[in-house]
């Protein structure tokens, strides 16, 4: 489907992007199955760690991949990396799921996507190309210790998940939080001034 190149990470990013584009332009089911097999089980973990039950997390992961299929035409590789794009689908689905719970029974929906669509104001974006942002993030993450990378994960989950980690590692919640702060500071330092 897509040729492998020696640089593993870069080729991964390009490969996912090519698969999403194949879904968008050709409704390519083989490409979709490849995306499903890689991302559905990870989105399921994401939803489990966000508090969903085994069965719900499975259903949400399926729902997220259906969204990948229907939204593939909106994927713009010039403005976002492939894994970041799939992350935003999972993130927005998680918000949607939480809201559905809160308004249980009331039958209406609000599209989440527009809430993250920020029109550029008078100042244009500084204009780092997506590939540059991707490679900077990748480089920054590889400079973190494995522990720190695991702590960075926590920024994408709420307090409940932090408490669970504290329990698993048998360290106080405050320690989890201070480790998270340290790791984030390090990451920001490594990302440098993006503009």
């Amino acid at each position: 489907m897509v040729n492998e190149t020696p640089n593993g990470a870069t080729s991964d990013a390009a490969r996912w992007a090519a698969l999403i584009e194949a879904v968008a332009t050709r409704r390519d089911r083989e490409a979709f199955a490849t995306l499903f097999e890689h991302f559905a089980p990870r989105i399921k973990t994401f939803m489990r760690r966000s508090g969903a039950s085994e069965q719900s997390a499975d259903e949400f992961a399926q729902e997220a991949l259906l969204a990948v299929w229907s939204k593939a035409g909106l994927f713009d590789p010039a403005s976002v990396g492939a894994t970041a794009w799939i992350f935003t689908i999972a993130r927005n689905l998680r918000i949607d799921v939480l809201r559905r719970e809160k308004r249980a029974g009331r039958d209406y929906t609000v599209e989440i996507d527009p809430e993250f669509h920020v029109d550029e104001g008078p100042l244009p974006d500084a204009g780092l190309a997506v590939s540059q942002v991707e490679s900077r993030v990748r480089n920054a993450l590889t400079h973190l210790s494995e522990d720190q990378q695991r702590v960075i994960e926590l920024s994408f989950f709420d307090e409940k998940a932090h408490a669970e980690i504290a329990q698993t590692l048998q360290i106080p919640l405050g320690t989890v939080k201070s480790r998270l702060r340290l790791a984030m500071n390090r990451l920001r330092g490594l990302l440098g001034d993006l503009s």
Binding site: T45, V80, I86, F87, V137, L141, L187, L194
Partner: peptide
């Protein structure tokens, strides 16, 4: 935008269920 890319890297790095 950078943090969304970190989110992508985090998602891609989660252990699959």
């Amino acid at each position: 935008r950078a943090m969304e890319h970190v989110g992508g890297a985090v998602l891609a790095g989660l252990l699959p269920t």
